[in-house]
Design a protein around this nucleic acid. Structure first.
Lengths: 206, 206
DNA sequence: TAGATTGTTAATCGATTAACAATC
DNA sequence: TAGATTGTTAATCGATTAACAATC
């Protein structure tokens, strides 16, 4: 019932509706949403239907109710603890990214193989990789962001899976498949950029 | 003819084939590729067909030829100059990311609104945002990575489009639509993480 | 009521896969 | 030749959209 893009779409609905809320709107029609997000109003209504969000014929949907329902669907009742593995530039940038906390995501620690990076006293401590399995088990960590060098990516992923992490957001250039133990979502920044370059160059020649 | 995921798939083929090349392989069958990448061999052959990559019945495909062809398709003959707009933690991490250059992508400058960030003498200079339009025109920049705060994202995108940039890789949380002037590819890290959290939490309860 | 919007079913669309003839 | 793989067409699949009855 839930297809791949549906949750990402739900998050877009959420962003838009929160914006409308700050503008003082109470009600919204599927048409309003479809105009802004450039998808059909049918899809908006279908998504809402799939997730049990109901409206009033003629009256549209109540923004507060949708937002409450979306948060319920996403399980926003408790803070999600996330670790960052690999504290190079990108890892550190993500550790300190300010956009997570208001979505209920808390980066609780970084991990690195390099002892000189270790700094246990900080707000968000950086611990040595050796301590990862114990930390994950003790704190019941389910989600990790992986920003390690390509060469150790496979090994790191295995370590995460063996420690009980269930989901990994993978920023390394290696594309991993999800397994029974661990769901991997791959973000390949170089590929995204190359794809964009391709599109732009094609446009130029058309 | 070229559909949305096709170029990203081509980049995955490239990665795999380069790996096979280092292992000493000369030939590859569509079956080999499909096994590793978890797509059907039909799709591999169809992609190759669409891009004019031909093989030999029985003999498979020649790895060197495919790689040459892929680079040709991607337009890898000249270095792509890219700028980074917004030099916060993520912007700076991307400016210094080592993975770009071997794919022919060169970050030529960063831009920031904050004068204290400006440092023109560096390897990759950070210039003030005011100098962006002139820089883009002079150096004929077509691609920008945008990592500015949400509040100035819209304004920055407009500035980029007006300056002649044709493609923007957008890391801000605001989802922009592509227009006639500028193609925008959005990467929303928070949404990717929330999506992953959703998947992992659902698995747990199933 | 008349008009407008939801909820839902059927139609469409596009991407992927299966199947198989051609052929090396 | 016999066997295996490409190249390509037809079938399938899933997601999105169109359409419209129900109804506020």
């Amino acid at each position: 019932m839930t297809n791949k893009g549906q949750i990402l779409r739900l998050l877009n609905y959420k962003n838009l509706l929160k914006h409308l809320q700050t503008l003082g709107f109470k009600k919204v029609f599927s048409d309003n949403i479809s105009d802004t997000l450039e998808i059909s109003s049918s899809l908006v209504r279908k998504d809402f239907g799939n997730f049990g969000i109901t409206g009033n014929r003629k009256g549209g949907y109540d923004i507060d109710s949708i937002l409450a329902k979306i948060d319920e669907i996403l399980g926003k009742d408790e803070i999600q603890k996330v670790i960052v593995v690999g504290t190079g530039r990108i890892g550190q940038a993500l550790m300190n990214y300010q956009g997570f906390i208001k979505e209920g995501i808390q980066i609780v620690a970084g991990f690195d193989n390099d002892f000189s990076k270790v700094s246990e006293g900080e707000d968000i401590p950086i611990l040595h990789l050796d301590k990862l399995p114990e930390f994950v088990k003790e704190k019941n960590i389910k989600i990790a962001i992986m920003c390690v060098p390509q060469l150790v990516a496979k090994h790191t992923l295995d370590m995460l899976a063996n420690s009980g992490v269930g989901g990994v957001l993978n920023f390394t250039p290696i594309k991993f498949q999800s397994s029974n133990e661990v769901t991997v979502n791959n973000i390949n920044i170089v590929h995204e950029l190359e794809n964009l370059i391709y599109i732009v160059n094609k446009q130029k020649t058309t």
